[in-house]
């Protein structure tokens, strides 16, 4: 079956520009990714390499002008609004989830689930799913009535991101540094959530600075992202090597290769 060959998610020669005054700065300088159903990929890179911009651009953030193509299940999504990408099954877990004061977690989750399903979620079913999710992620019940990310600790925000991923059941989840700022217990809970969400019919891209979360989530493929480009792709052993030798090692090799 040729279907097996088609990636669940891919982008081709993706470039992202940000405007500053009359000038544009290119931040993502041509990225290609192919992620097959059932896979977990890690995209690793140093601070400032543009990996968060790549994640935001893939989701359609309006601050960026984007060139290149993005496909979900073979369908082009690069011309779609962020909410349309989400409804088709894309999900972005934020590094810094934004607070929306006055909007309760419960109301927000129900609106998001309804949008993803294309129809309202019955109240009883929603309550049950939300409660199960809270228990699974070790979140207190009064979370439901709190305002979205408002006054949340870093760990609480990340748990809520993972909870949303579990409830919205995306086909392709982009997790942007979901592991940053977490203590070891929270990291374990978040990792368990990622492993739980992973299934043969979906794919996950973990964007991360450190190798730490990869002790708990085993990626199938590791990409190294530097200066707006994927400079190396390999198996899980690449992450281990990066942790031991640092990003300078690759930077050195890359520039050496460029010279020769």
């Amino acid at each position: 079956m040729s279907d097996h060959k088609q990636p669940l998610f891919s982008c081709k020669n993706l470039r992202a520009f940000i405007r500053s005054g009359d000038d544009e700065t290119e931040i993502v300088k041509g990225a290609d990714l192919e992620i097959m159903a059932g896979q977990k990929h890690a995209l690793m890179g140093p601070n400032g390499s543009g990996k968060s911009t790549l994640a935001a651009a893939l989701m359609g953030h309006p601050a960026y002008r984007v060139e290149g193509e993005i496909f979900l299940n073979g369908e082009p999504v690069h011309g779609l609004e962020p909410h349309e990408r989400a409804r088709l099954g894309m999900f972005l877990g934020f590094q810094y989830p934004v607070a929306v004061p006055g909007v309760s977690v419960a109301n927000f989750l129900r609106a998001a689930m309804g949008a993803r399903r294309g129809q309202e979620v019955p109240v009883r079913e929603f309550r049950q799913l939300m409660t199960e999710g809270f228990e699974r992620l070790g979140v207190r019940k009064d979370f439901a009535a709190r305002y979205l990310n408002d006054g949340f600790s870093g760990g609480e925000k990340k748990r809520l991101e993972i909870l949303q991923m579990l409830l919205l059941k995306p086909t392709f989840a982009l997790l942007d540094e979901t592991d940053s700022g977490l203590d070891i217990d929270a990291l374990k809970i978040v990792s368990e959530g990622v492993n739980l969400a992973s299934a043969p019919d979906n794919a996950i891209l973990l964007v991360t600075h450190y190798q730490r979360i990869l002790d708990y989530v085993k990626p199938d493929v590791v990409h190294v992202f530097m200066d707006g480009r994927i400079v190396r792709t390999g198996g899980p052993e690449l992450a281990v090597e990066l942790e031991a030798r640092g990003y300078d090692w690759i930077a050195g090799e890359t520039s050496a290769a460029a010279r020769s």
Partner: peptide, 26 residues
């Protein structure tokens, strides 16, 4: 704020209304 809500499947207009509702709700 609007982008965050959009990434959860909520269209722009509805996202703006939700933010305004929240602004008033507090």
């Amino acid at each position: 704020q609007v982008f965050y809500l959009q990434t959860r499947g909520i269209p722009r207009g509805e996202a703006v209304r939700l933010v305004v509702r929240g602004f008033v709700e507090t």
